[in-house]
Design a protein around this nucleic acid. Structure first.
Length: 219
DNA sequence: CCCTGATTCGC
DNA sequence: GCGAATCAGG
């Protein structure tokens, strides 16, 4: 692979967006993170902040080597000027995603949001749970068809979840979503994955069903 | 251990 | 110019 203009541009953009060299390398394909880093230096944009990047590079962005946890931030508002235009999706989701149940997690996990309006519309109090026309509510796999042990295991392990952000996901971190994607109370499990699987042991348990229960559905 | 970027140096 | 190997760190 060579550094074509397109590849270089992607490199520049991703680098200025704060992506790590390894992430960029994966995205580009055919190169290692070393190659990316080497190129970055040759291009003279080793310092992500220094005005060197081409085009719209200026980011008031929080581009840190270490992405800081954001879940605790009660005042989200404007903080991510870098993402809007670019979905920045690294890759689709060919995951055999068994449709977890993000909303059905541990309801009493913690209460971070407390923007209680003294009165007024109580209807507004209920954000987006189930009745969202938008699209949410990932297909729910008959919750009760999952072995109780597995479910217990999950709810237990989820208390130990690392609560990592999207940015912190790697091939070795459990990608099970927790919390409500529509709010700030959203994160990923982050525990060590089961080799070859996208989730940790507990979540693999509920994600990949042995296929059974209603095994004999006649037609 | 996992990961990060920085640097060197033979190609 | 390129990037693997290495270094230095979290």
């Amino acid at each position: 692979m060579s550094w074509t203009e397109e590849r270089v541009e992607l490199l520049k953009r991703m680098w200025s967006e704060g992506q790590s060299a390894s992430q960029i390398a994966k995205e580009l394909g055919g190169v290692t993170r070393n190659a990316v880093i080497g190129k970055v230096h040759r291009l003279g944009l080793s310092n992500r902040g220094t005005g060197a990047a081409a085009g719209a590079a200026e980011e008031a962005a929080p581009a840190e080597a270490e992405p800081a946890p954001v879940a605790a931030d009660p005042a989200p508002a404007a903080a991510e000027p870098a993402a809007p235009a670019e979905p920045a999706e690294t890759e689709a989701a060919p995951e055999p995603a068994p449709a977890p149940e993000p909303a059905a997690v541990d309801p009493m996990e913690d209460e971070a949001a407390e923007d209680e309006e003294a009165d007024a519309e109580s209807a507004e109090a209920a954000p987006a749970r189930k009745p969202v026309p938008g699209q949410p509510m990932p297909p729910q796999p008959s919750t009760n068809e999952i072995s109780p042990e597995a479910l217990a295991k999950v709810s237990e392990v989820e208390k130990k979840a690392r609560k990592i952000t999207l940015m912190e996901l790697t091939e070795r971190t459990c990608k099970w979503p927790l919390g409500d994607p529509a709010t700030e109370d959203f994160w990923f499990c982050g525990l060590p994955v089961q080799p070859g699987k996208p989730y940790c042991e507990a979540h693999v348990g509920v994600a990949f069903q042995p296929m059974s229960s209603r095994r004999d559905r006649k037609r």
